[in-house]
Simulated scan of single mutants.
Amino acid sequence: MKIIIKILAVAAALWVATQLVAGITVTTETTTKQIGTLLAVALLFGVINTVLKPIIKTFGCAFYVLTLGLFALVVNAGLLLLTSWIAAQVHLPFHVDGFWAAFWGAIIVGLVSWLLDLVFGD
Rank of each mutant, 00 (worst) to 15 (best):
85 W>G: 10
31 T>L: 14
62 A>I: 15
87 A>T: 13
76 N>V: 02
91 H>C: 12
109 V>N: 13
45 F>Q: 09
42 A>N: 11
5 I>C: 08
15 W>V: 00
25 T>F: 01
76 N>M: 00
36 G>R: 05
119 V>E: 12
107 I>D: 05
98 G>F: 02
49 N>R: 05
16 V>S: 10
40 A>I: 04
88 A>R: 14
66 L>G: 13
50 T>P: 02
120 F>W: 14
44 L>I: 02
112 V>G: 10
56 I>G: 09
64 Y>G: 07
7 I>R: 08
95 H>K: 11
8 L>Y: 08
40 A>W: 06
26 V>R: 02
2 K>V: 01
103 F>N: 07
4 I>N: 06
18 T>M: 04
104 W>A: 14
31 T>P: 08
62 A>N: 09
8 L>V: 08
64 Y>I: 10
26 V>Q: 02
33 K>G: 00
1 M>C: 07
3 I>A: 14
92 L>Y: 06
47 V>Q: 13
5 I>Q: 12
12 A>F: 13
90 V>K: 03
70 L>Q: 02
120 F>N: 11
2 K>L: 05
115 L>S: 15
60 G>C: 13
51 V>P: 15
12 A>H: 12
9 A>G: 13
51 V>W: 14
110 G>T: 01
76 N>A: 01
80 L>N: 06
63 F>A: 15
16 V>W: 10
20 L>Q: 11
4 I>F: 13
94 F>I: 03
90 V>A: 04
10 V>M: 10
94 F>S: 03
74 V>P: 03
35 I>D: 06
35 I>W: 08
60 G>A: 12
75 V>F: 04
43 L>R: 09
15 W>A: 04
27 T>D: 15
100 W>Y: 12
52 L>V: 01
38 L>K: 01
52 L>K: 07
58 T>Q: 12
34 Q>T: 15
91 H>L: 14
108 I>Y: 13
78 G>V: 04
21 V>Y: 07
102 A>W: 00
32 T>L: 09
7 I>F: 10
73 L>M: 10
113 S>L: 06
81 L>T: 00
68 L>R: 11
16 V>Q: 12
109 V>H: 13
52 L>Q: 03
108 I>R: 02
40 A>K: 11
68 L>D: 07
42 A>R: 08
46 G>N: 04
81 L>W: 00
31 T>S: 14
83 T>V: 00
70 L>I: 04
19 Q>A: 15
100 W>E: 12
54 P>G: 10
28 T>M: 01
2 K>H: 04
17 A>R: 00
56 I>R: 06
32 T>Y: 02
73 L>H: 09
112 V>M: 10
92 L>K: 04
25 T>P: 08
65 V>Q: 13
68 L>E: 09
16 V>I: 13
105 G>V: 01
23 G>F: 03
21 V>N: 08
35 I>M: 09
121 G>V: 07
112 V>P: 11
102 A>F: 01
9 A>P: 01
52 L>W: 02
111 L>C: 12
